[in-house]
Amino acid sequence: MNQELHQFIVDYGLWAVFGGTLLEGESVVVFAGFLAHQRLLHLPSVMLAAFAGSFVADQALFYLGRRYREHRFIQRICEKPAFGKALSAIDRHPHGFILALRFLYGLRTVGPVALGVSRVSPLRFLVLNAIAAAIWAVCFSLLGHAFGRTIESMLGRLHGVETKLAVAAVLGVVIWLAYRLYARYRR
């Protein structure tokens, strides 16, 4: 069982990172960075998969907002309170908004759609989105890797895939709770 789970992570871990970053992916990338520290995944590959998923998701949402402004799905997004805040931030600081978008809680889906509806050119978004996705992927991958190093220094070398996954699951729950508390605090 242990070896099978290890091989499953090695074989499909990067696909999971890519898929996880198509949505809210911070915890997925931190977890993958932790697994890279445990030598189950390769850190530069984790960064590349995180970059690709994040970049593709935001590009797709940008073009959905640009092409289908009047569609029911886009109109529902436009009705969210965060959408108006995103548009006003885009008007004031379009470049800064694009670069900071991934680090702003609650704007992962709304932000790229708002950018698509705005006057930001597709080429400008493409370039700044690539830069932002690279920064984001490196930061969160390294955060997970550093977390692995910290846990290792506290607990000694972790043995067994189950132990690694248990620690990573705890990390995921902690990150999720931190986001929930931060969101509640912002309201």
Results as ranks from 00 to 15, higher is better:
60 A>D: 07
81 P>Q: 01
41 L>K: 12
68 Y>R: 14
77 I>R: 07
83 F>K: 01
98 I>D: 11
43 L>P: 05
98 I>K: 14
42 H>T: 13
80 K>H: 06
52 A>C: 09
94 P>W: 10
93 H>F: 15
86 A>Q: 09
59 Q>Y: 03
86 A>T: 08
45 S>G: 14
45 S>V: 14
44 P>Y: 00
36 A>L: 05
43 L>F: 01
46 V>E: 08
90 I>Y: 06
37 H>E: 01
78 C>R: 14
33 G>S: 02
86 A>E: 06
76 R>I: 07
53 G>H: 06
78 C>V: 12
88 S>D: 06
57 A>F: 00
59 Q>F: 02
88 S>L: 09
100 A>E: 14
75 Q>F: 02
71 H>L: 11
90 I>E: 05
73 F>Q: 10
86 A>P: 04
46 V>K: 10
88 S>K: 07
42 H>D: 08
86 A>F: 04
33 G>E: 00
63 Y>C: 11
68 Y>K: 14
80 K>P: 04
97 F>V: 13
84 G>Y: 03
34 F>Q: 00
41 L>V: 09
49 A>M: 07
41 L>Q: 07
76 R>W: 06
45 S>H: 11
88 S>R: 10
73 F>A: 15
38 Q>P: 00
83 F>C: 01
97 F>R: 13
91 D>N: 12
88 S>T: 13
63 Y>W: 11
90 I>S: 08
39 R>G: 08
34 F>H: 02
67 R>P: 10
73 F>C: 10
35 L>F: 03
83 F>T: 00
77 I>V: 12
74 I>H: 03
40 L>M: 09
71 H>V: 11
71 H>R: 11
43 L>W: 00
51 F>D: 01
